[in-house]
């Protein structure tokens, strides 16, 4: 079993952190193999930032495949760039607070999340990525909810005052994801 995930959005939306928290959890709290590959380049300023996470029971070949099982998309330019890479039957997690255009694919599962809106309601737009991470974990169950929280907690240990806000964001995301999976 191998999962290829691409996370994409604007620079500053916490794209790399989201991917790293996932990959870090796999490394430290499971026996699986994992790769995290950040994409950088001339598009870095003001354009799209994206990273690839591959989680596998076996050895991992390319740390970025051509075909994605899942996409987490945080802005419109990223949707345009990456939608075609999603496999038929794959899942698209879409931040629809910032994306108003039509998703022109009917062969995929679309999970729309008003993530920016949710982050603002929780109290800080910076927790947008944690909301999305929560939705992804709540929906897919690919990693244990507690394990991912431990990773967040450890990484924020030097900014402990931010933990309650992040906990709130993570739990809101989890609840949203679990509910969508139930449907």
């Amino acid at each position: 079993m191998e999962t290829n995930l691409c996370v994409a959005g604007f620079g500053g939306q916490g794209i790399m952190t989201l991917g790293k928290f996932l990959a870090d959890t796999v490394c430290h709290r499971t026996e699986k193999n994992v790769t995290f590959f950040p994409s950088y380049g001339a598009e870095q300023r003001g354009g799209t930032a994206n990273c690839y996470v591959v989680i596998s029971d076996g050895k991992i070949g390319a740390p970025l495949g051509e075909v994605m099982d899942e996409l987490i998309i945080m802005n419109e330019p990223s949707l345009k760039k990456f939608l075609k890479t999603l496999k038929s039957g794959g899942t698209l997690f879409l931040n629809n607070s910032l994306i108003n255009c039509e998703v022109e694919r009917e062969d995929i599962t679309l999970i729309e999340i008003p993530a920016t809106q949710m982050a603002l309601e929780i109290g800080n737009i910076k927790v947008l990525n944690i909301v999305m991470l929560g939705v992804y974990i709540g929906y897919t169950g690919i990693l244990s909810e507690e394990a991912v929280w431990k990773t967040i907690e450890e990484n924020l240990s030097r900014k402990a005052s931010l933990l309650p806000l992040n906990k709130k964001a993570y739990e809101a995301g989890l609840a949203y994801g679990r509910e969508r999976r139930g449907k």
């Binding site: 790293k20 990959a23 796999v26 490394c27 193999n33 994992v34 790769t35 995290f36 590959f37 950040p38 950088y40 740390p63 970025l64």
Partner: peptide, 9 residues
């Protein structure tokens, strides 16, 4: 550039 920038356990 892949080996240099990717993360692995």
């Amino acid at each position: 550039g892949v080996i240099g920038t990717m993360m692995e356990p």
